[in-house]
Amino acid sequence: MTDWLEIHRGEAPLVVAFPHTGTQIPPELEARFASPWLARKDADWWIDQLYAFARDLGATTVRTRLSRSVIDCNRDPSGASLYPGQATTGLCPTESFDGEPLYRGEGPDQAEIEQRRIAWFDPYHAAITAELARLRAIHPHVVLYDAHSIRSHIPRLFEGELPQFNIGTNGGATCDPALAQAVQSACAASGLTHVLDGRFRGGWTTRHYGEPQNGIHAIQMELAVRGYMAEPADPTPDSWPTELDAQPAILPILRQVITACLAFAKGHV
């Protein structure tokens, strides 16, 4: 653990990664952003708290405390788009999901982006790599679950209302079909909307680590935030973020999802 990187080690064959829950901004960078609120607006709010139960089940968790506006640990470090032809944000975003400029002036140049990558992106992924290797040495199969959330309505990114559960496997390439089916079944049983490989097919983390033929099964879950916190129609500094619900509606379903991931990893031979 460092001042910005949290690692909680478990022995079960499951790693839960949190690349976007952080809100820390280094002091030397904060003044360059248009506002502290805007630089934190697109965080995956409260997701690490929502999944805290996973550690009690033996899961390992890896989390960066840094804001995704500083460095997005779920983007291709080469700068290549994960969703060609669709609106998205980069390794060091210069605009919010809604298209608002994040910086007062110019954003980071290539040299600064490279410095941020070396300082923060690389250590975060080195931690994931090390934890997967540690667990893979004692388990034939390990699941990497990349945990995310996003507002339900962001017209710049997608039309209409996002399904409650958005499962990503990059078209089935990143995990065994049985894992995707188990997670999808848990979501379907909730009666809430869900989709497999819809708008969010899995980011760089899922695509980079998913090697089912080598015993690493990666899957992404993008939650619509309405399932665990109040969601204003028009987020402002006065209305966003809201608090984590005292009894999140989707928490029982997430417990079933994580339990299904563990059952798959332990039973898949």
Results as ranks from 00 to 15, higher is better:
residue 217 H to L: 05
residue 195 V to P: 03
residue 190 S to R: 15
residue 225 V to S: 12
residue 268 H to Y: 15
residue 241 P to C: 09
residue 224 A to D: 11
residue 208 H to M: 02
residue 236 T to F: 05
residue 202 G to A: 06
residue 199 R to G: 08
residue 198 G to P: 06
residue 217 H to I: 07
residue 232 P to M: 12
residue 235 P to K: 00
residue 198 G to Q: 05
residue 223 L to M: 06
residue 268 H to F: 15
residue 248 P to C: 12
residue 206 T to Y: 14
residue 268 H to V: 11
residue 222 E to N: 01
residue 199 R to C: 08
residue 254 L to G: 01
residue 210 G to H: 07
residue 254 L to S: 02
residue 199 R to Y: 09
residue 212 P to N: 01
residue 261 C to H: 01
residue 186 A to D: 12
residue 209 Y to Q: 03
residue 204 W to T: 02
residue 203 G to Y: 09
residue 194 H to S: 15
residue 230 A to H: 14
residue 193 T to E: 14
residue 220 Q to P: 04
residue 203 G to C: 02
residue 257 V to E: 04
residue 222 E to C: 00
residue 223 L to Y: 03
residue 242 T to E: 02
residue 265 A to L: 12
residue 196 L to V: 14
residue 228 Y to R: 09
residue 262 L to I: 11
residue 243 E to S: 14
residue 195 V to S: 06
residue 266 K to D: 10
residue 223 L to N: 03
residue 227 G to M: 00
residue 239 S to R: 07
residue 252 P to W: 01
residue 227 G to F: 01
residue 222 E to F: 08
residue 203 G to P: 08
residue 245 D to R: 01
residue 205 T to A: 04
residue 216 I to W: 10
residue 238 D to G: 06
residue 183 V to H: 01
residue 232 P to E: 12
residue 192 L to P: 10
residue 260 A to N: 06
residue 201 R to P: 03
residue 190 S to G: 12
residue 185 S to I: 10
residue 234 D to Y: 13
residue 245 D to C: 06
residue 261 C to P: 05
residue 244 L to I: 04
residue 221 M to V: 05
residue 188 A to F: 04
residue 233 A to I: 14
residue 188 A to K: 09
residue 194 H to D: 13
residue 245 D to A: 14
residue 240 W to F: 14
residue 238 D to H: 11
residue 251 L to G: 01
residue 237 P to E: 00
residue 221 M to S: 05
residue 200 F to T: 02
residue 235 P to H: 00
residue 218 A to L: 02
residue 212 P to E: 02
residue 258 I to T: 05
residue 212 P to M: 02
residue 217 H to M: 02
residue 260 A to V: 07
residue 207 R to W: 11
residue 223 L to V: 05
residue 234 D to I: 15
residue 234 D to N: 14
residue 256 Q to N: 11
residue 191 G to F: 05
residue 260 A to F: 01
residue 184 Q to N: 13
residue 202 G to F: 08
residue 226 R to W: 04
residue 205 T to C: 09
residue 197 D to S: 04
residue 262 L to C: 02
residue 186 A to E: 15
residue 245 D to N: 07
